[in-house]
Write a protein that binds this DNA or RNA. Structure first.
Lengths: 294, 294
DNA sequence: ATACTATATGCTCAATTAGAGCATAATAGA
DNA sequence: TCTATTATGCTCTAATTGAGCATATAGTAT
């Protein structure tokens, strides 16, 4: 057998997230159909620089710190170069630039469990999945685990596993070109929704044990702002007093002498992130379903 | 400015780990100088298949489940195709095939804190790092955090951060071609030791909250075997009774009716992994420095 | 047989953390 | 002044964690 080293094109894809009025949003192109992306060119001296180039070119946004997500290697079509798609994630607190910011939960409505709004989607999903599983117990068990059905608990950061299961079951539009959208949730071109799911999984896992949330809230914030940012990202509600205790005990924040103004009720103190104490940061736990779904 | 899509070669690199007599080992080539690797070829229908091909070709080993680690994109040298290096990690309990298995800790002697053997390396590292940092407080603080100096705590899974810091400080042989090895620890060709460090970081993080250890121990094992596997991988000693409590409370294992034989003292019961109960697996905590370094 | 050594395993106790809820404080607006 | 509303402090209980002691069961030396 003859061996040929494959020539490749490398494509760089960015998932840039911000929080706008408590809504987690992602920077998209073409009316929300795809993520900023472009091929690696000879002028780019590194993968990250290529990524920055394309994002700036396509959206005007200058990326800060980025984190690599995953590399997808699609099978090459005949007479085509193979495509290697390298995806990255970035955070910003300045989402006010031009460009198409879309809520995460347009693409994954079942992931927002803060209110009961997702109940209808989840019910549909449950039914369709049960239909797909039939009486194959391995499939049933996977559905239960991944979607927290049948007494199993919901795992925030299994966003990707859930999306892939829905794909496998043919319930997302990208899975089959002839299929109608079987469940709500806006599709994207190519595998960009999968890349987005990878990013949400990673970010949800990350905010739990690193101070990543602080890159998404303003310099000065109330503890409720911080909590609501965590809730928006994780898609779950938390217990207010316990969250406060958690954050304060770890000395992750320091008081300022300023207060929030122009709101109802007692004004809340503004806090600032203490970068020094952020080594052993633990922002999870302290969960309680108040209005969300357990 | 003219844009040219870069032609790339994609190289696939594997880090295969096993446990041999309580020693965590990695499969290497050329007398431990590099990892199994090879270019993506047109015959390979996916990245993973390419990886499998090369590992089998070079070492005779057939990979099971693999997990992607990271994609490195080196700057292209003049008149050369750009190289994208995609690395993967895999586990096996059958390390007895031919090929060069090397202990992890040959490459990272400072990572094995189970005994006092690493104290001399660590002292050397501390001195050299202090010399490198001088009185730049940002450097000093990074050294303290990453290497757990000056009262900071040691973080098992910061293997990569530690290696990269040593590189930056010019203390590993790969950092400068003219440098003598400044601290002990076997070097590798290219960036393969960095890839290995990435794998250790990932695996140490992974065994804490997934049942990955069970892929490295035999079907039937004593609780001490399991504990020693965790200790070998994490490089730290654990409290025996508490480890046992942790594992049993989560019902991660089930008793067999068999016992270990041919050993001193009371024979230990053999257990088997319960895959059913492995969703919320938590094998960390329960740490106590017995002989290791706190 | 008996004592000794070595390991496994069971159990206790105190300290800390997590989950939940109540009580009080401080503001704006009626 | 009274009420609605949010912030913040505090308590209480249940789990979990860290640590160590005690007992069980084997082989081996006396």
């Amino acid at each position: 057998m003859d061996h040929h080293i494959a020539t490749c094109r490398a494509e760089l894809v960015a998932v840039l997230t911000t929080l706008q009025n408590g809504v987690p949003e992602v920077l998209t192109l073409q009316d929300g159909q795809c993520l900023p992306a472009g091929p690696l060119e000879t002028e780019h001296t590194s993968l990250q620089r290529g990524l920055r180039h394309w994002v700036e070119q396509q959206t005007g946004f200058r990326l800060g710190h980025v984190e690599q997500l995953y590399t997808f290697g699609d099978a090459a079509l005949a007479h085509e170069d193979r495509l290697v798609r390298i995806s990255y994630m970035a955070l910003t607190r300045d989402g006010q630039t031009q460009g198409g910011w879309q809520s995460w939960y347009n693409y994954f409505p079942w992931e927002d469990r803060r209110t009961n709004g997702c109940l209808t989607v989840l019910k549909t999903i449950e039914d369709r999945l049960k239909g797909w599983a039939g009486d194959q117990t391995d499939r049933l068990e996977r559905c239960n685990q991944v979607f927290g059905l049948n007494g199993e608990s919901w795992n925030d950061d299994a966003v990707l596993e859930r999306y892939e299961l829905l794909w496998e079951a043919g319930l997302v539009q990208e899975a089959a070109s002839d299929a109608q959208p079987r469940i709500s949730g806006q599709p994207m071109l190519w595998d960009h929704r999968r890349i987005l799911a990878t990013a949400l999984s990673r970010l949800r896992a990350k905010i739990r044990y690193t101070p990543a949330v602080f890159e998404l809230v303003p310099e000065e914030f109330t503890l409720l702002h911080l909590q609501q940012a965590m809730e928006a990202l994780s898609g779950r509600l938390m217990h207010k007093q316990n969250f406060r205790r958690l954050v304060q005990n770890q000395q992750l924040v320091e008081e300022t002498d300023r207060y929030e103004s122009g709101v109802h009720g007692r004004p809340a103190r503004l806090y600032r992130f203490r970068r020094e104490n952020s080594e052993n940061c633990y922002l999870s736990g302290a969960k309680l379903p108040l209005g969300g779904i357990s």
